[in-house]
Structure formats: structure tokens, C-alpha cells
């Protein structure tokens, strides 16, 4: 399955609109496979349509989900003018949407999450689990970070995207964030990558991660 399917099939509850689109996309695929027995051009047209949706969903992921999860988008039901205003606002706030992709992003959002369509059901979750997810945790046993060494790790591996002072650039601000006090989660994200962030397993080792966290903890935003 392509990236579009991963997006709508993630941990978020699925909206009716999105489910509908997933179904139509999948349905169209089967139809296309069937039709391709008859006329090969139908196959090409149908596949191209799904590819376009995948590309737009990838755009959404790349530009929007750096700062907030996709739920923020899924719950909106807006007109094209409202979506354009939202995208413009986010560009001003730091979303690096290339000029030639803005229109396709707005078209995609206006088509998927359009004013007047049925809103999605939000998921519910255990309040304790939710509240615990940002709580600082004790460091693992034998954790020892060297902040001085960590600065070099940051400059070499992270600064390009998170900014030279870690306060955010293409990737988000890392200073004074709860993730710095949840080492296992931090390690998971850095080693495996997340959304548009690449995986650093094979690039950084555990010792370097400890140093990196130690340096980030010394930084203050205010």
C-alpha cells in the first residue's frame, strides 16, 4: 500500500469522508484492474488519480504534521476560501509549502474536508494514558550524557533541520520540550525516524544520543 493508505489507516480514528475516499480509491483500483482486461487506458487513468491523492496526502503530512497531528485537519469542514486562508496563515507561521504546491494542497483539503460534509467522530482514550504521555520520566540505568560532546552531535546531525540553536526551522523546536525527559521515546523517534524526519539508526549510537539529550537539556528558550 502506498503512502496515502498509511495516512488514513494510522492511529487516528477515521472520518467518514476519509473512509469514503479510501473505499473509493480502493474500489477504483479493483474496477481498474477489471477494466484493464477490456481497455488498457482506463487502467492508466485510474492509477494516476490514486497517485495524485497519495502525493497530496504526502504533502499534508510533510507540511502540516511537523507542528500538529492530522486530527487538526481531519476535524475541519471548510470552504476553499477558508482552507486557503488557513494554509496562508500556516505558511506565515513557518510551514514551507512550495509555491507550486499550494494550490494542489488547498484543492486536496477543500475536497477531502469540505464545508457541509459529515464531520468525523473523534476517538476517546484513557485520560491517564493521555496525561502520562508528556510526563517527565527517570533516565534509564547507566544513562550518562556529556553535554559538551552533545553539542557537536547536534550540529552535525540535527541543526540543519531543527535550526542551529534547536529552536526549530524545518523541524520543530526541541528546547525545553518534555520529550527530552523521556529518553526511550526520544531514542525511538531519532533512531526510527518519524513522518518526514529520517531514521538515524546506523548514523548515531546510543552514547551519542545520551550526549545529544544532555546538551539539549542545557538549552533555554527564555
Amino acid at each position: 500500500m502506498g503512502p496515502f493508505f498509511r495516512i488514513v489507516g494510522g492511529e487516528q480514528a477515521l472520518g467518514k469522508t476519509v473512509q469514503f475516499n479510501r473505499r473509493t480509491c480502493r474500489g477504483r483500483k479493483w474496477f481498474v484492474i477489471f477494466a484493464s482486461f477490456l481497455i488498457s487506458t482506463h487502467f492508466l487513468v485510474g492509477t494516476a488519480s490514486c497517485e495524485v491523492q497519495r502525493a497530496e496526502a504526502d504533502e499534508m503530512r510533510a507540511h502540516c504534521e511537523i507542528c500538529h497531528d492530522r486530527g487538526m485537519i481531519f476535524q475541519q469542514r471548510l470552504t476553499p476560501a477558508q482552507w486557503l486562508a488557513e494554509v496562508k496563515k500556516m505558511e506565515k507561521w513557518g510551514a514551507a509549502v512550495p509555491a507550486d504546491q499550494e494550490k494542489s494542497l488547498v484543492d486536496y483539503l477543500s475536497g477531502q474536508f469540505k464545508a457541509g460534509s459529515v464531520p468525523m467522530a473523534a476517538r476517546e482514550a484513557s485520560s491517564v494514558t493521555l496525561l502520562d504521555s508528556v510526563k517527565p520520566l527517570a533516565d534509564p540505568a547507566r544513562f550518562h550524557g556529556d553535554a559538551r560532546a552533545g553539542q557537536g552531535v547536534f550540529t552535525d546531525a540535527c541543526g540543519e533541520c531543527h535550526g542551529p540553536d534547536a529552536r526549530g526551522k524545518q523541524g520543530p523546536n526541541l528546547v525545553q520540550q518534555p520529550i527530552l525527559y523521556r529518553f526511550n521515546d526520544f531514542q525511538e523517534i531519532v533512531m526510527r525516524g518519524r513522518r518526514t524526519m529520517p531514521a538515524f539508526s546506523g548514523v548515531l549510537d546510543r552514547k551519542q544520543l545520551e550526549n545529544l539529550v544532555a546538551w539539549l537539556r542545557t538549552q533555554q528558550i527564555h
Binding site: 487516528q12 500538529h68 486530527g71 487538526m72 473523534a122 476517546e124 482514550a125 484513557s126 491517564v128 493521555l130
Partner: peptide, 20 residues
Amino acid sequence: TQSDGSLIVRLSRPQDLETP
């Protein structure tokens, strides 16, 4: 009790959680 209760997740990052 501390171990139950649920919230409606309007947004998980950052957290916007609604009381049922």
C-alpha cells in the same frame, strides 16, 4: 478513580482533550 475515565481526543499533539 485514577485508573479510569476517558477523554475525547480532539487533537493529540499538542493535546486538546474534551470531557465527555
